[in-house]
Every structure is written in structure tokens, then in C-alpha cells.
């Protein structure tokens, strides 16, 4: 069992996860962000691997990605940074990005190093389910890494069930048909969608992202599903305040979680 799977077992509900882009706002911000997330009680983190052509992402993540690349961030450096802080923090880490940089790095070498520096799993939105099942699943098992699939309001029920059967951490519920960073409050469409999902009695925890930016959206996510992931809203705070603890405090404030 990897750290993320353990966390999901001990804390099944009201989960909060944050996404940030490695190398943003500074190339060496990684540890400070991880430390302040752990301090703030965030349940797990998605460490974004910056990519030149992030198709599923809106302007905020696009901008952070291109700045991070310009700052000199790459997979090799990220692994070195994570290796150096291995064991120092308990917060589980996922890597999130696009398939091409992983392929160029060498898939097995990538998975092995990810495991070696304490990473729990991967989210690669452009790796198709069928290809994961046929080509990658056994490698993920070998290195005890989870793979997280996305579903959207347009994903058919039989496909959701297939994804559920292949999942070994949680299912990433994209809240609305959109790229990342669209900040509207959740309405009837979302609550109906969330209700439909819970009524399917899936074995995987359901954690929603895309649009989590304030207390309303976080509460709704927690009310219907197991947790929420906040990305663009966190990156905006990091852009406004190039000091991770302060950015974290501002975000917690927006999410209604100020202690």
C-alpha cells in the first residue's frame, strides 16, 4: 500500500488536495509548498510536471507551466528535489502531467524513480484507459504506484464502471465540461451529477476538481463526494504572493478553512 492509499483508508471523507506546478513561482519553491501544505492540514498534493502544451488546462496552469519551464524545471530536477526531502514530510504526493515528457524520460525509469522518491502515483490525463490497461498497468503494480483516471459529466456509466474497476486510489471527478480554472459556483448540474455518481456505489473514493475555489464549491464537494482538489485558485494565490505559507493562508481563508 502506498502513502496515498493509506491516507484514503484512514480518512475517507472531507479530503482536500491541492495542485501546484513544480518550478512555479520559483524553480526551488517545491519544498516550501509541500511544507506549508502539510502544515495547513492538506491531505495530499498533486505536483504538476510542467508541459509546453497542456491541452486540458486553462490560462492559469498554462502560464505557470511555461514560467516553470523557463525557470529551468524538468523531470530530472523535480526527482532530485523530491529525493532530497524524502521522508521529511508525511503528505502523500501524486505527480500530474502529460504523457509525452514521461515517454521521453523512459516510462519504466520514470516509475521506478517516482517510487524511489516517495511518490504514490500519477495522473496523466492524456493516457487513454485502454492503453493504460494493456500497456502500463503491470508496471504501475510493479512499483506500487496508483494511477488516477478522470471522469466528466459526459462519461458514460459503463465507462465509469470500467474506470472504477481499474482504479486503485480514487477517481478524479471533473466537475464540469471545461478546462481547468473556470471559477463558477456549483449549481444544480453539479449536484445532480454528484448525486448520480454516489448512487452508483462505486468502490473508489470520488474526489472532484476543476472549479474548486471558495467555501461554496468546497462544501458542495464535501457534501456529495469524498473530497476536493484545488489547483488554479492555489496557483493564483502563489502568483499574488510569492511566499508559499502566505499563499496557503490566503487560500485556506477563501476556502473557509481558516483556523
Amino acid at each position: 500500500m502506498n502513502p496515498l492509499q493509506e491516507r484514503l483508508k484512514t480518512k475517507p471523507d472531507n479530503l482536500l488536495s491541492l495542485f501546484f506546478t513544480a518550478g512555479y513561482p520559483n524553480v526551488d519553491s517545491t519544498e516550501a509548498i509541500i511544507a506549508s501544505a502539510e502544515q495547513a492540514g492538506v491531505d495530499f498534493l498533486e505536483v504538476g510536471m510542467p508541459y509546453s502544451d497542456p491541452l486540458a488546462d486553462g490560462p492559469v496552469i498554462q502560464q505557470s507551466s511555461s514560467e516553470a519551464i523557463a525557470n529551468g524545471m524538468n523531470i530530472k530536477l523535480l526527482f532530485r528535489q523530491l529525493e532530497q526531502i524524502k521522508g521529511k514530510y508525511k503528505i502523500p504526493l501524486l505527480l500530474m502531467g502529460y504523457l509525452n515528457p514521461v515517454l521521453q524520460y523512459g516510462t519504466e525509469k520514470f516509475l521506478q524513480q517516482a517510487r524511489d522518491c516517495g511518490v504514490s502515483g500519477l495522473i496523466l490525463p492524456d493516457l487513454p484507459i485502454e492503453e493504460y490497461r494493456d500497456e502500463y498497468q503491470s508496471l504501475f503494480k510493479k512499483y506500487d504506484l496508483s494511477f488516477v483516471f478522470l471522469i466528466t459529466p459526459h462519461t458514460r456509466e459503463d465507462r465509469i464502471r470500467l474506470i472504477d474497476s481499474l482504479s486503485n486510489a480514487f477517481i478524479y471527478v471533473v466537475s464540469t465540461a471545461a478546462t481547468t480554472g473556470k471559477q463558477q459556483d456549483f449549481g444544480q448540474a453539479q449536484t445532480e451529477y454528484f448525486t448520480k455518481l454516489t448512487s452508483m456505489n462505486l468502490r473508489s473514493p470520488l474526489i472532484t476538481g476543476f472549479g474548486i475555489h471558495n467555501a461554496q464549491t468546497l462544501e458542495q464537494a464535501w457534501q456529495y463526494l469524498n473530497g476536493a482538489i484545488c489547483g488554479s485558485a492555489f496557483l493564483k494565490k502563489l502568483r499574488e504572493n510569492n511566499h508559499p505559507p502566505a499563499a496557503m493562508e490566503a487560500l485556506m481563508n477563501d476556502l473557509g478553512l481558516k483556523k
Binding site: 491541452l55 486540458a56 490525463p125 492524456d126 478522470l150 465507462r159 471545461a178
Partner: peptide
């Protein structure tokens, strides 16, 4: 077809 789930349908 290496596409995110949002494009799948």
C-alpha cells in the same frame, strides 16, 4: 488517440 477524458465522447 491520446486525449483527455473530456474529449473522449
Amino acid at each position: 488517440a491520446y486525449i483527455p477524458e473530456m474529449l473522449y465522447p
